[in-house]
Structure formats: C-alpha cells, structure tokens
Design a protein around this nucleic acid. Structure first.
Lengths: 149, 149
DNA sequence: TTTCTATTTAGAATAGTTCTAATTCTCACT
DNA sequence: AGTGAGAATTAGAACTATTCTAAATAGAAA
C-alpha cells in the first residue's frame, strides 16, 4: 500500500469516529508504518520532526492516542518504561530480546489463539489477548535444553 | 504454609542470593502472599505500614525489587501505570477486567504453554512468557457471540 | 466572511520510580 | 562485650514519561 492509499485508509477510519485527518496524524501514522520497531512517543516525535518541524510532543501523544482509539495502532507495555506503539493489526505476539532491548512481532495462527482462549472459564470473552515472550532471540538450544550462548 | 515456614523459605531464597532476611522484606512478602490482588508499590506500602510504621516507600521499592530478583515475585505491567506485583509462581495468565480494573490469575496447563511456545522459530528459548487477557470478567456470551451485559 | 468547533501547541503539573547521601543495622572477628 | 566493614534502610531530591491547561490556529459549515 502506498502513502496515498494509507492516508486514504486513515482518513476513512478517522471519519468513522467523527475525527479529522490532519497532517500531524498522517505523518505520525506513516512514521509508525515505515519503521516497525515499536518506537516510544519520544522516538516517534524525533522521526516526525524532520517532516513537521513545528510539531510538539503533546501532539505526538495526542495523535498516538487517537490512532489507538481508532484501532489502527496498538499500545504495547512490555515492561516498566515508556509505552511503545505498533501498527501491526494482525494477531501477533511480541518477542522481547533482553540483550538488545528490541521487540519483534511473531504471527499467531488462529488455532494457537483458540487454544489460549480456551483456558478461560466458560462464557468469558476477552476483548484482547497479549502474548509476550522474553529472552535472547535466536539463542540456539542444545539437546539438554541449556542455552549455549 | 504458615507465616513461620514462609519466612523460612524467604530467608533461604535470600541467602541463596547472598542477601539478608530483614523484617521489611518479610513483611512485604507476607503482604503480597496475604492479599493476591496484584497491588502496586503504593498499595503494598499502605499495607505494610501498620506492621512497620517507620518503613519508607523507597524501602518498599527496594524490597519488591529484591523479591523479583530472587524469583519469589513477578512484576506485572499490564498497561501504562504503576507496576503491580504477583507472588504466584505457577505458570499463569492474567485476566484484566476493564470494568473493575482488577486483575486475576488463570492457571495455564502445560500443553497450552507448549502450544504457545511452538509459535517461536526453531531454537528460540524464551526465559518467560506473559499472557494477558483484557475484557469484562464473567460477561456471559449469547449464541450470537454478542455480550449480553 | 463569520462563526463554531476541532486540533495543535508550549509549558506547567502530575505520577511513578529511581537516586543520593546519611544513618542504622548486622555480622564476623577480636 | 567492642569494633569495623558491608548491607540495608531512610527521607527527600531528582528524574522520566505522561497528562493537563489555556491560548492560538485551522478548517468546515453557514
């Protein structure tokens, strides 16, 4: 999807919620889509500034909040510290690499989601499920199950 | 397990890490075990004070950090806001009720854990897995899948 | 154009946590 | 029992991330 059609999709979602499409909201959203490394509000601010030099941090917070409210972006709180933002709308888990501090997405097949939901008592219907792994990404594991790194 | 043997277990764990058992650490741990409602540091502080009126908030933070480091307590960050603390060491998920703001534990059977781990690429070995549900606890769901509450 | 409301903005305020430096405690050794 | 070293506690200052506030701006609608 190119920038024009992304903008289109964004405007549509915003309109659905009775909100306006603004340059700030568009650029914040584009920045999230462009580099999907779960940036903090500060990082988004830094990336948006070259494009919109007069934008304020408060606006970045406002835009992020709006995008989350429109279900275009997920707010991610993996550990104490700044909230991070993720424009991936597909069901996915997060792998948080404790060595690098980086987090990446891992697609969740529907059958895994179902299996997880099944642990809930009958009748419980969660509105969302978060799954987060913590560890050293790619650390090979030997036959004894001990990490070799 | 009574308080005496809990204290015993705590001392042991602390000693294993080269740390001392102190009244502050004991009371903080007891408070967590007694009411397992995932309290914040502030809430722990308030519950510990009657027992140890001179304790400081900084000490509560220190004790909690120590207990987490000794693997006796888990720090839980479900959403933006204060970290919460959980002395449940069994594999479990969290159900966060958005109406009441309360969070409760849901045991995770080993086969579900395995199924979830299986989404990771070969060789990845997570050191921990967090699963969090969000929703209205106990909201009955009718045949159409719509919540009736 | 004028008006009305949404949005943005800068800076102040707040919440939660961590840091600092001084004190107190505890243990090991005499 | 007395002493010295390191561990733990304490109060308050500092810090980080976020939210709030009030004024300025921008856009749509009349």
């Amino acid at each position: 999807m190119d920038t024009a059609s992304r903008t289109e999709a964004l405007s549509q979602r915003l309109a659905d919620s009775g909100l306006r499409s603004t340059p700030q909201r568009e650029v914040v959203y584009d920045v999230l889509l462009k580099k999907r490394d779960h940036p903090t509000a500060d990082e988004v601010f830094a990336r948006v500034k070259p494009e919109l030099p007069t934008i304020s941090l408060a606006t970045v917070y406002n835009c992020l909040e709006t995008l989350v409210a429109c279900d275009l972006v997920r707010a991610v709180n993996i550990e104490r510290g700044p909230t991070r933002y993720c424009p991936n709308l597909r069901p996915h888990a997060h792998f948080h690499d404790v060595k690098t501090g980086r987090t990446h997405d891992i697609d969740l097949p529907p059958e895994v989601l179902e299996k997880v939901q099944a642990v809930l008592p009958k009748g419980y219907k969660p509105s969302s499920i978060e799954i987060t792994f913590r560890g050293s990404a790619g650390a090979p594991v030997d036959a004894t199950g001990k990490s070799t790194s």
